[in-house]
Design a protein around this nucleic acid. Structure first.
Lengths: 186, 186
DNA sequence: AGCGTCATGTAATGTGTTACATGATTCG
DNA sequence: CGAATCATGTAACACATTACATGACGCT
């Protein structure tokens, strides 16, 4: 019953934040509401079930904090297995698919890395990110070319090409940021 | 039975591509596999059900193309109601929530706009995008400040702040792109 | 006494993901 | 004739979204 299913971005976000310091469901909801972390959640309706799943899997464990009070407060912390899981997940190299399908997750992983894995892993991570982002820029540029050369038919609007242009810029920006960050950390 | 539920990003992507020119499910799968559009889908397992939903809603309609052949091919095209729906959806101004939760959708809408709505709508769209992106940059910068000033505690790693730094850069890049594109189109 | 916040959830619904399944054509 | 491609799907599962529900605590 090892439940080897991959953590979702939301679960990873919660695990990472609890690793930083133990938190209650309400704490997490507040963070999602008031910080850019909110990108990864929308409401308690997703947060609490995710907490339950993480606990069922054994990567976090919650204990009621104020038994005395009639208003209980369940404080969650990361288990040793949870830390192992987090290390493994954060240490994975960046892949093309991760960049294309969920670039957010890449940044989320980077954000948590500092306090979980060593500097060498962070550096490897950034290197793989640079490699994949550069490759993606080339891939998109090729497609961009094919949109202009082999047919800019009469009535077609330029917005699809312009949108792809932004995609390329954005991807190049990511690679540049990674390069600068890599220098920063050296 | 008007089914006023909001189209998902995938459904919007499909509707927009079929609007450009009629297509079969297989055509769409090919596009998702071989172009940056693939960001919005993963497999036929999501594409075909989305087609069914769009047809049930009445925004597209499919007709079998090669009755003679034993291998049928269902070609979908956008209905008049579908065009109306597309116009309405693409004409919506950009909101803060759209940028935070699904920036992709914003670019998708822009990509399709050119062939669907007039230049004035495209310009309004870009203006609302600039406004919201600028606001978001300020919002994130405020949070960035609060991460550095009121406590850079001893052992804390810099990666969370660096990740947010990228978020800010990226958002600023979006606003810049929108400004340049706005000039381009004028 | 009442309002806002603290704090935790559940229920319904729909959608994406993954994997699998089927059969017809075309090309070498 | 066999393999790749064309072309269409289905089934199981889990997750996110939205809305709703409950009740205690603190303050005025």
């Amino acid at each position: 019953m090892k439940e080897n299913r991959r953590l979702t971005a939301l679960e990873l976000a919660i695990l990472g934040m609890i690793h930083e310091s133990p938190k209650t469901g309400y704490d997490l909801c507040k963070i999602f509401e008031t910080t850019p972390m909110g990108h990864y959640s929308s409401s308690p309706g997703s947060t609490y079930p995710a907490l339950k799943r993480l606990e069922a899997r054994g990567v976090i464990s919650g204990a009621v904090n104020r038994e005395t009070s009639l208003r209980p407060r369940k404080l969650y912390e990361v288990t040793p297995e949870g830390t192992q899981h987090l290390i493994a997940r954060l240490s994975e190299p960046v892949t093309r698919d991760e960049l294309v399908m969920s670039e957010d997750e890449t940044l989320l992983r980077f954000a948590f890395m500092g306090n979980v894995v060593g500097l060498s892993v962070v550096i490897s991570f950034l290197e793989s990110l640079i490699k994949e982002a550069d490759a993606l820029v080339k891939e998109f540029e090729a497609h961009y070319q094919s949109m202009t050369t082999n047919g800019q038919p009469p009535g077609k609007a330029p917005t699809p090409r312009l949108a792809l242009g932004y995609g390329i810029e954005s991807c190049r920006g990511l690679a540049d940021w990674a390069r600068r960050t890599l220098e920063d950390l050296s």
